[in-house]
Amino acid sequence: MTNDLEMLKEQYADSIGGIVHSAVLLALVAGSLASFRWSLLLLVIAVSTLQMYLPRVLDEPLQKATDKISASNRKYLQTLADWLNGIDTLRRYAVGEKFLSIIHADARELESAYVKQQKADQELDYLNQAIYSLGNTLIFLLTAYFVARGQLEFGLIASVNDFSLYLFGSLMNIANYRG
Rank of each mutant, 00 (worst) to 15 (best):
M1Q: 09
D4C: 01
E6D: 12
E6R: 15
M7R: 15
L8T: 09
E10P: 06
Q11K: 15
D14S: 15
D14F: 14
I16L: 12
I16A: 13
G18K: 15
I19N: 13
I19Y: 13
V20T: 12
S22C: 04
V24A: 01
L26C: 07
S32N: 02
S35D: 10
L41G: 02
L42K: 04
L42R: 08
A46T: 10
V47E: 01
S48Y: 05
T49F: 15
Q51R: 11
P55E: 08
V57L: 14
V57K: 14
V57Q: 10
D59Q: 13
E60R: 14
L62M: 12
A65K: 09
D67G: 09
D67E: 13
A71Y: 04
S72Q: 13
R74C: 03
Q78P: 08
Q78R: 13
T79M: 10
L80G: 15
A81Q: 13
D88L: 04
D88I: 03
R91F: 09
R91L: 09
R92A: 06
Y93G: 00
G96K: 09
K98S: 12
K98I: 07
F99H: 12
L100H: 12
A105F: 08
A107V: 02
R108C: 07
E111H: 12
E111K: 10
V115I: 11
Q117R: 15
A120T: 10
L127C: 07
N128E: 07
Q129T: 08
G135A: 07
G135M: 06
G135N: 10
L141Y: 08
T143V: 04
A144I: 03
G155W: 09
V160W: 02
D162V: 03
L165R: 03
Y166K: 03
F168Q: 03
F168A: 01
F168W: 05
L171S: 07
M172F: 06
N173A: 14
I174W: 02
I174L: 08
I174G: 10
Y177D: 14
Y177H: 15
